[in-house]
């Protein structure tokens, strides 16, 4: 009998605490498949954020560090600078990465810190019960924007990949989604490319994954996937915003 489907070795054999229909789990699996395929589990250190994935240290089988809210890129920098032989990745939500940790994110990128950042954009603060995130869409109702996000009052959402793509230290800035099989396959390719970049010492790679939060969006899992397609992708277009391997004459050396 041949094995057609298996749990990746680098994914711990435990129940995940995520809500039904939450796509955090899919993204964990993709990261682990890539870690297994490249064969780096024994040499990898992951950094957890503060957010719904705060306990991801119980899910990834490699060595794991829990960082303070938003500080994962700085913590990852410390690991990588101390031990450049280790593969280092962070796994961060939008509040973590693009609000409280904006400075750490931007500076890790501009230093060309040789790490992988997996960025989970679910347009909300999942863990604290669905408040406005820096990525919350205009008009989106959250606990702290009960009348919908009004750009005149709360400003505009941040497009993280576009912003980081302007920095010379960024090797890869790509936005993917996990709402459909083709998108999931695309997402895995991007994650794999990010880890290969790190292995090949190309610099800072970020993969932004559009993700669902059915619980705080007040939608069923299926409706949540639909919202991702109809509301999020138009505002956050999928694609590669920076790829150091693509020839671009304007790019500084």
């Amino acid at each position: 009998m041949s094995v057609v489907f298996e749990k990746p070795h680098s994914l711990c054999d435990v129940n995940l605490h995520y809500c039904p229909g939450c796509t955090h789990g899919i993204i964990h699996r993709l990261v682990c498949e890539v870690i297994d395929e490249i064969g780096i589990e024994g040499n990898t250190v992951g950094i957890c954020p503060v957010g719904c994935s705060v306990m991801a240290y119980d899910y990834f089988n490699c060595d794991m560090i829990e960082a303070a809210h938003g500080r994962a890129p700085a913590t990852a920098t410390g690991v990588k600078r101390a031990r450049p032989d280790l593969m280092v990745f962070t796994y961060q939500g939008d509040g973590d990465l693009a609000a409280i940790g904006t400075a750490e994110t931007v500076h890790a990128a501009t230093r060309g810190e040789n790490i992988v950042v997996i960025f989970i954009n679910n347009t909300t603060y999942g863990m604290t019960g669905g408040q406005m995130a820096p990525t919350t869409l205009p008009g989106q109702v959250t606990q702290t924007t009960p009348f919908g996000r009004d750009p005149k009052v709360q400003g505009y959402p941040i497009r993280v990949c576009e912003m980081l793509s302007t920095l010379s230290g960024t090797a890869l800035a790509q936005r993917v989604a996990v709402d459909s099989v083709p998108h999931i396959n695309e997402a895995k390719k991007a994650i794999r490319k990010a880890f290969e970049n790190e292995r090949d010492e190309k610099g800072f790679s970020i993969v932004e994954v559009l993700s669902t939060c059915p619980t705080n969006w007040g939608l069923s899992p299926v409706e949540a996937l639909e919202r991702l397609r109809t509301d999020m992708i138009p505002y956050y277009p999928l694609g590669v915003f920076k790829d150091c391997d693509a020839k671009n004459p304007k790019e500084e050396k």
């Binding site: 250190v45 950094i47 560090i65 960082a67 303070a68 500080r71 700085a74 913590t75 990852a76 920098t77 410390g78 690991v79 990588k80 600078r81 101390a82 031990r83 280790l86 400075a103 750490e104 931007v106 500076h107």
Partner: peptide, 21 residues
């Protein structure tokens, strides 16, 4: 390694990461 961080907050969290190794 000597690294000038973007803030004291980043610096201490870099220390956390390096120490963790």
């Amino acid at each position: 390694v000597f690294l000038q961080a973007e803030s004291e907050i980043a610096a201490i969290n870099m220390v956390l990461g390096a120490s963790a190794t």
